[in-house]
Design a protein around this nucleic acid. Structure first.
Lengths: 218, 218
DNA sequence: CCGAATCCTCGACATAAGTCGGATTTACAG
DNA sequence: CTGTAAATCCGACTTATGTCGAGGATTCGG
């Protein structure tokens, strides 16, 4: 009998009896699109694992502006920070489409870490890559223009000269990811179109001039 | 015989024989002001511990702009990420004044983590607080004005209604910390002075109107 | 105590980014 | 198929931030 957790790389090093123990202490929850899973300021003593669907981690300003810190898909873990500190959540997690997630109590994880160094290493390397991602975000926000950021994201998320867009990947969401407003993103997209760099279609963006785009991404 | 590492909270949970083992494998290095300790893009397989002095972690853009990610003082650890990933350094570390640091090889740390869950937890909570700091930085850069950021920093680093300035804390460095340029920082400082919120003196800034400042920091 | 270098101050100007009103187009429920 | 809401597009305008040039103050080594 295979636990669902066995497929998740986060727990792949654990023996199956531990996986079953986790599953026993985990609770499955399903969220509809737009629903809030974790709210900034709350104290939620546990971590989550995405089984299906997509979600976003974001911060909201008083003025209604939004900055997306991360997108989460199947297999991703979030709210891990809450397990290791007693501070309230720094960001909200919102479902972008119907999603099912598992909630695992802080104690469950905490105890396993004590006894399984391999899990501890997993957690550490996960946090380390989160830091790398955040440092990149800081670099983008502080040292690059929106044009450069957009070019970078297009180049990075490209596969076979096209960038596939999820159903929820509206210009609204993309703008929040870049740390700007929809209007400005749209303006920049159109500019790239005018310059013949890309072609914006229904659910994908086609890269026409990768070289120039890479140049703009620096 | 007490190891210097016993005073560092990072290692405080380790038995003294381990501390001595670390010290044996650690190398002390001294840097002058302005000297580069770690360079962005390099691969340095080990972590550092600050014994004395102050340093900054920062990213430089092609245009010569600088974004400080963190300041480091005695007892702080840096470059820990390099121990857990094989990616090159994302930022540079530069001494702000004469500083002495200890370098500890990746293997030394890596092995200790395997056998000492307490150390693993230390590392994890250290990384977690780094993430929190970076998330705050992202929020500042993306959702707040420079005025608001400056107000926030002044309020946070205040002690008894004054903010002490290290010798190296020039407007240049403070600007890099806020993610802007010296001119703009100066303009904002003067604006606060004009509004009667602060008083800028030799090596400290005196807070005159904490309430309004907090309001500006939101 | 003196000179040079760094740091700070200041106004004028340039520009990236944000805001606003509104016109189209597309998606989707009924 | 149809009507409504959402998403996209667009130009004109405002504003925060960055840039430049230049002068004044402070610090520090010799």
């Amino acid at each position: 009998m295979n636990s669902i957790f066995s497929k998740v790389s986060y727990f792949s090093d654990l023996p199956s009896e531990d996986l079953l123990a986790i599953e026993k202490n985990a609770h499955k929850r399903v969220f509809k699109a737009e629903q809030m899973v974790v709210m900034e300021g709350d104290i939620s003593g546990g971590m989550y694992l995405v089984e299906s669907g997509w979600l976003k981690v974001s911060k909201l300003s008083v003025g209604g502006r939004e900055q997306v810190l991360n997108f989460l898909g199947p297999g991703d873990v979030f709210n891990a920070i809450a397990v290791f500190t007693d501070k309230p959540n720094q960001a909200s997690v919102i479902a972008l489409e119907k999603s099912s997630v598992w909630w695992i109590a802080r104690e469950t994880i905490s105890e396993l870490i004590q006894t399984h160094p391999a899990l501890a290493k997993r957690v550490i390397s996960d946090l380390a890559s989160r830091i790398q991602h955040l440092v990149n975000l800081v670099e983008d926000l502080s040292l690059r223009t929106i044009e450069s950021r957009l070019a970078r994201i297009l180049v990075e998320s490209m596969e076979e000269s096209t960038v596939k867009r999820h159903k929820w990947a509206t210009q609204n969401e993309m703008a929040a990811r870049l740390g700007t407003v929809p209007d400005v993103l749209n303006r920049t997209l159109r500019k790239f179109v005018d310059e013949g760099l890309i072609e914006v279609k229904r659910h994908q963006i086609r890269i026409l001039d990768l070289e120039t785009l890479k140049l703009k991404a620096e």
